[in-house]
Simulated assay, not measured.
Amino acid sequence: MHPQTLRQYDREGLVTPTRTRGGGRRYTDDDVERLREVQRLSQQEGVNLAGIRRILELEAEVRRLKDELAAARDDLRRTREAADRVFAAGAAGDIVAMPPGRRPRRREVSTALVVWRPQSRA
């Protein structure tokens, strides 16, 4: 790609390379892929620079929305998993997670006798 073309793409904001101390441009692998896509759209598809900018913006928006959708799906999955659990008091009085429609197992019924007398107030 011609250096003047690279400078123009930089001026147009289609790619933003890092700069050296002397002002030279340094392109990452992602920058190079973006430049190839810009060149393809311009030369093979006949899209002008404003159209290319808009295409790149829309592609970035689509990526962002896909990420947001994936996060929302993960949240929904976790919410559904949490809703599938029911909590109950276990035999020892502790809280236990149970599948819906199930009850905790009971202990054997005690036959112990407990005597209680209220203390008199003096």
Rank of each mutant, 00 (worst) to 15 (best):
A70K: 04
V32W: 04
R26N: 07
T111W: 05
W116S: 13
T18W: 07
R85Y: 05
L49E: 00
R26D: 04
T20D: 07
R64N: 12
Q8D: 05
P17D: 15
I95K: 01
V114D: 05
T5Y: 02
Q119G: 11
R80S: 05
D94L: 02
L56K: 00
R121A: 11
Q39N: 06
G13R: 08
L56M: 10
R103D: 05
G22P: 15
E68Q: 14
L56T: 00
R25A: 08
R34M: 05
T18R: 04
A50S: 14
L58P: 00
A50H: 02
R53F: 00
E61N: 03
A60R: 07
R73G: 04
G22F: 01
Q44G: 09
L49M: 07
E57L: 09
R11D: 08
D67K: 15
E37H: 12
G51C: 12
Q44F: 00
D75T: 08
L56Y: 00
P17E: 15
A88G: 13
L58D: 00
R103C: 10
R85F: 01
E61H: 07
A122G: 15
D67I: 01
N48V: 09
A83P: 04
R53P: 00
D30C: 04
R117F: 05
R7Y: 12
M98V: 10
E33M: 06
A122K: 11
A97I: 04
G23P: 14
D30M: 10
L6S: 01
E59H: 08
R34P: 01
R19Q: 07
R80V: 11
V114W: 11
P104T: 15
E68R: 11
R121Y: 07
D10W: 03
I52E: 10
R21H: 02
F87L: 14
T5R: 04
D74F: 02
A89I: 15
Y9W: 14
T79P: 03
D74L: 03
V62D: 13
T28H: 03
E59K: 14
R117E: 06
E81N: 08
A72S: 13
E12Q: 11
R34W: 06
L14D: 00
Q4T: 06
A82H: 08
E59T: 13
E61L: 15
V32H: 01
E81T: 09
G22C: 06
R34G: 01
R107S: 12
A71T: 03
V96Q: 12
D31Q: 03
D10H: 12
V109K: 13
L113Q: 07
P104D: 10
E37S: 07
T18K: 11
R102F: 05
E45C: 10
S120K: 10
E61V: 01
T16A: 14
G93N: 05
E81Q: 08
L41C: 02
E108H: 09
D84P: 04
R106F: 01
G13P: 10
L58Y: 00
A60S: 13
P99F: 08
E59D: 11
V115R: 09
L56R: 00
V86E: 06
P17R: 15
T20M: 06
I95S: 02
D84S: 06
R103Q: 13
R77F: 03
A83R: 11
R107F: 14
A92V: 09
G51D: 01
E33D: 08
R117D: 03
Q44W: 00
T28W: 02
V32D: 07
E108Q: 12
Q119Y: 09
R36S: 02
R102P: 04
R64C: 03
D74Q: 15
E61D: 09
Q39P: 04
R85N: 06
E57Y: 03
